[in-house]
Design a binder for these strands. Structure first.
Ligand SMILES: [Zn+2]
Ligand SMILES: [Zn+2]
Ligand SMILES: [Zn+2]
Ligand SMILES: [Zn+2]
Lengths: 549, 549
DNA sequence: CGAGGTCAAGGATAGA
DNA sequence: TCTATCCTTGACCTCG
């Protein structure tokens, strides 16, 4: 009788009662009959992560975003996702469907592109570019990467309600006056690298030494890559043919193609009768690439996955024990650990040890890095300035990609280039907390790819030959190299995965995108840190490696 | 033998590792911690099928629902069901118990609790508790917080399908032999505080000094709070009356109440004819509280919000500039900043400065803290051990709550107790990254409450008088004080917000819950850090403040 | 109105 | 087989 809360008459039992089974939850009475969930077909509750979807699918995608580590289908990846399968949908395929319908964090994304669609777009772009490179007079010889303003983006999502616009943009696309721009510059955010004139001594000297244009090698290159000549204006007709083949819809069935001596890339290198020789050509490209790849000798190179894992686990145990000595800080996050480390004056020693390690390793590493590029077709024909720029711009991504087997994404332990086992946090001491997390995540993704060495080598080559990461004197040649490597990679994937190769390539492209993201992050943060007196004093080599002056 | 492991599909290996040690499963950070399973007494994981129960009993009932075939007892149907019989309970009797407690398919409830529901539950809890405290003989005089097993839960939502059961449980409730338990211990996670015997010198001495029972003050207290006497066994009848009034239904209209001189809390202090004097009583309570509140003199106390904001903004600018000198680290997170700070050897100075500051402030602060408690009705009548325990246990939450105006949750800058402006990250140097985030978040919430000083004072008092945060000699008296303060607060809210006061109270309760969470976090992390040599050496006062030995 | 959090239902699975 | 735990799901809620 005396409850004052009765002013709000609802809060008593009756409220609890009405709170039983309700019908479908709709945040608001939905005036219009909205389309059903695009993913599962159930009643949608709104637009979530960019896609009209139901509460369930929304939650599913949200959980994915939190828990990372994409789900894997165990049944071939072709499970049906609809309301009939509610409650027990295959998570892997459901996630794939979410992706393919364009779900993404914040729904902001540049369009509703699938990984696969994105990859296709990238590849198509590259194709068109090569075409243009070949057909165009070289009057626009300026740097690709300086021009990426105003480019009409191929990623602008075609609005469903304006299909006329779509064709508009499609037609304007091929005759765009800005058409010489790279596609990658719109896919990857523009890099914030500095001018190419400043070259670190250790890196620069290696490059210069190795860059005296050896006429013999150059000749070999010409032989091997006669279809992609160093003279841009010649022999374009063949490539043009490829393109015209490819411009038509891609609906031609694979089996048809097989009659034409296939397993060879069709998207990038559609077969024509003149392309019969490509197989062997590609083979020698791979061989050369692998020679360069052999030059890279990270400690883990010749270890099996199990051996590496044993190393890492062992190291992790020892590390944990060590950490326990400092006040049992084991479960504490890195920054706390580092703080303790610093304050107890143990840090300086610890850090110095690592710096010494880094210093030693850098010398070896950089030489091997340069030698790897000798295996990249025509790379040595590039202007030496470009070679240096590329090496510099790709350094971080290259080594992250190179070392993916050496890092346990679960424990964060890594085997260094010369075989020291340590937590990556010590490498990331100066980075914001989530930098090492990103590194781990990318590594997880790369591991997920289950790469063969040849694929790995090709990826490393591709990684080195993005034209949008730095200003270049001759971006077209670089572009061409990358296109070639992409073709090689694609063929390998096709041989290995057949129909699923598209998805795999998509995953690989995604890794590149993620790597690029890390690189950006890295540049932003480390630019500032390089001014640190301590580093300047104790690790000038690192600065030379990391920065441009 | 090893093949068995390999049967598990490919890349699962790290995941399976963790299987050995399993703790009680609690569905991730339960904000509303519930009393133990009503069926078997083990730790409950939530409300299942309408009854507060554990995972096991939930699963048991689910299996029954599927199998349909009801279990049959073979031993007469009177088997004991509790945790001691775990694993080998009689299924028939277990199911019977499930039924008798109201488990049913219809009892289910979906979705989360509204803020208001939660608050209502909390308040209801408190009410019932006070009831129990007063009616019970003191034979069970042991610590509240040790006993929170087996309490019958007022959180059990009455199952719709078994309304008869409801009255059953209601009647069993009031005569429960375990009824002396605190509610808060089930709402808030149990605190991990240490024994009350160890008291830090600085805190302890203040308390002891102030705790010599001043006969004059004690007399005043008796006059002012004669209805809540320090002697527990006397004058309980009045409170009992409140309670008995309160047990009946709450359907009397508010307007009726107003004829009885209301605006006084009815939920906690239901009006009876004897309660006419309460208004003035409450008034004097508030006045006394405010006297204590005046003793608290944080630098910002007499500044307007705008003035504080100006201070903070100014400090933030200066801080940013300073930070820019160290390699323009402005946007970097705290850990990086601290690292730089340490490595350049500027850190030690910086840290030491702050330590000095903390040391200075602690002395002032603790004295004022103790003096504040003099304004809490009957607080000084508590056993001095209890006073010290409460002061100790509440210290963090108290100061976070006290200083909410001094902290800009957007920039993370704060004005210290004596007026120094600095980023809170420097206070949180040893905490994991998200600790300061939590602090900011709680502060945001408190600011959102738009508290009046009196409300603030009441909250501080309530904050100090939770019985579940530490062991107490006389928890019931503490409980009574808190109930009184809650009533006062509730009335103030009602005057100010009328119909919306329920929601506001809900928000306030939520803040308490959040503060408690921070406290838990704090205790977990800082326990370890107190072993740090550097701190022991340079800031023993801090340790005394933070810890118990 | 959508992102994100909450939390009970139910499935999966190791253990008894 | 039954039990108890772990984990994913999806309806519902809050907040900005
Ligand atoms: Zn759906
Ligand atoms: Zn599937
Ligand atoms: Zn149970
Ligand atoms: Zn039985």
């Amino acid at each position: 009788m005396e409850l004052k809360l009765e002013l709000e008459p609802t809060n008593q039992k009756p409220k609890k009662q009405q709170r039983r089974k309700r019908e479908k939850y709709m945040p608001h009475a939905v005036p219009l009959v909205l389309p059903p969930c695009r993913i599962c077909g159930k009643l949608a509750s709104g637009i979530h992560y960019g896609v009209n979807s139901c509460e369930a699918c929304k939650g599913f995608f949200r959980r994915y975003l939190k828990r990372k580590e994409p789900f894997q289908c165990t049944k071939g990846g072709n499970c049906v996702i609809d309301q009939s399968s509610a409650g027990s949908m295959c998570s892997g395929c459901r996630l794939q469907k979410c992706f393919s319908l364009g779900m993404s964090k914040e729904g902001i994304r540049q369009g509703r592109y699938t990984l696969q669609e994105r990859t296709n777009a990238i590849i198509e772009m590259k194709k068109r570019q090569t075409e243009r490179c070949s057909t165009e007079s070289r009057e626009d010889n300026c740097n690709h990467y300086l021009e990426n303003e105003m480019q009409s983006s191929p990623f602008d999502y075609p609005s469903l309600s304006s299909s006329d616009m779509q064709s508009d943009s499609a037609s304007s696309f091929s005759c765009s006056q800005n058409s010489s721009l790279t596609s990658t510059s719109s896919i990857f955010p523009p890099s914030s690298t500095s001018s190419p004139s400043s070259i670190s001594s250790s890196l620069g000297s290696s490059v210069i030494k190795s860059n005296k244009p050896d006429p013999q090698i150059l000749k070999n290159m010409k032989t091997e890559y006669s279809k992609i000549p160093s003279e841009l204006d010649s022999s374009t007709n063949e490539i043009q043919q490829h393109i015209s083949c490819n411009d038509s819809s891609s609906s031609t069935s694979t089996s048809e193609k097989h009659s034409q001596n296939s397993t060879v890339s069709q998207l990038l290198f559609p077969l024509t009768t003149e392309n019969i020789a490509q197989d062997s050509e590609e083979h020698s490209t791979i061989e050369k690439l692998m020679e360069g790849y052999k030059e890279l000798k990270p400690f883990t190179k010749n270890l099996s996955d199990e051996e590496i894992q044993a190393l890492l686990s062992d190291g992790f145990q020892k590390y944990s024990q060590k950490v326990n000595l400092f006040g049992s800080m084991d479960p504490l996050p890195a920054n706390v650990y580092n703080e303790i480390f610093n304050i107890t004056n143990m840090d300086i020693d610890g850090r110095m040890k690592i710096f010494d390690l880094i210093r030693q390793e850098l010398v070896t590493v950089i030489h091997e890095y340069v030698r790897f590029t000798h295996g990249i077709p025509a790379f040595q024909n590039l202007p030496s300035k470009d070679q240096a720029s590329l090496l510099k711009a790709a350094r971080l991504e290259f080594f992250l990609l190179l070392g993916y087997r050496s890092l346990d994404p679960e424990t964060g332990m890594m085997v260094s280039y010369t075989g020291h086992v340590l937590p990556i946090r010590q490498f990331c001491a100066y980075a914001p907390g989530d930098m090492s997390t990103s590194w781990l995540e990318v590594t997880r993704h790369i591991r997920h790819l289950q790469l063969h060495p040849k694929e790995h080598a090709a990826m490393l080559g591709i990684c080195l030959t993005f034209t949008d990461r730095c200003p270049l004197e001759d971006p077209k040649s670089v572009e061409k190299i990358q296109t070639c490597l992409l073709g090689v990679l694609q063929n390998m994937l096709r041989v290995r995965y057949q129909g699923a190769s598209g998805r795999h390539l998509a995953r690989i492209m995604d890794v590149f995108i993620k790597l690029r993201g890390l690189n950006e992050e890295f540049l932003m943060v480390y630019k500032k840190i390089c001014q640190d007196r301590f580093i300047i004093q104790h690790l000038p080599e690192l600065l030379q490696f990391l920065f441009d002056e």
